[in-house]
Amino acid sequence: MVHTNTMDGALFEPTLYIVKGMCILDNDGNRILAKYYDKNILPTSKEQKAFEKNLFNKTHRANAEIIMLEGLTCVYKSNVDLFFYVMGSSHENELILQSVLNALYESVSILLRRNVEKRVLLDSLDAVMLAFDEICDGGVILDSDPTSIVGRAALRTDDVPLGEQTVAQVLQSAKEQLKWSLLK
């Protein structure tokens, strides 16, 4: 009846709406893909981007897996020039969020044939968008098994002819590999 301002119960809420947001940022902290699922948290894209900047600044140097920021628990993982984040309420089971992050990272990794980097990701942006959609629907975890997620997101049938693809791709990936090993 009346909303008293006492502290919320310390127990976790029995809800399926666990994920507050997921995003992939590049190595300058710019958004590649981001979805926020709670209308009350970061409702405008301006607030979202400010939050992402802040999040990136706090996380891009120290690879510490998890951070509490602005009332959200954020778990993260990075590879080369990509940063993957999953956000949940600060009052949420961190390990569930971690499992969602693993699902996201693994699915993308399989989709990109283990070349988890920005250029490759942008080439298959449509498939990654579908993977996002298969992992979380409006804040509810839809699936967390990377193989089944990929099975429903990687649907490209009319691939580039085999010969061309291999030549182009092999060259490209060899070049990238070499470059990154030098840059590291």
């Binding site: 958004r31 893909l33 301006k46 942006l125 449509d126 009319d158």
Partner: peptide, 19 residues
């Protein structure tokens, strides 16, 4: 051409996603 359409849709979604 499905490939071409898919690319255009991706562009629309990307724009929406960028706010």
């Amino acid at each position: 051409n499905p490939r071409k359409c898919s690319l255009i849709l991706t562009k629309i979604l990307y724009l929406l996603n960028q706010g």
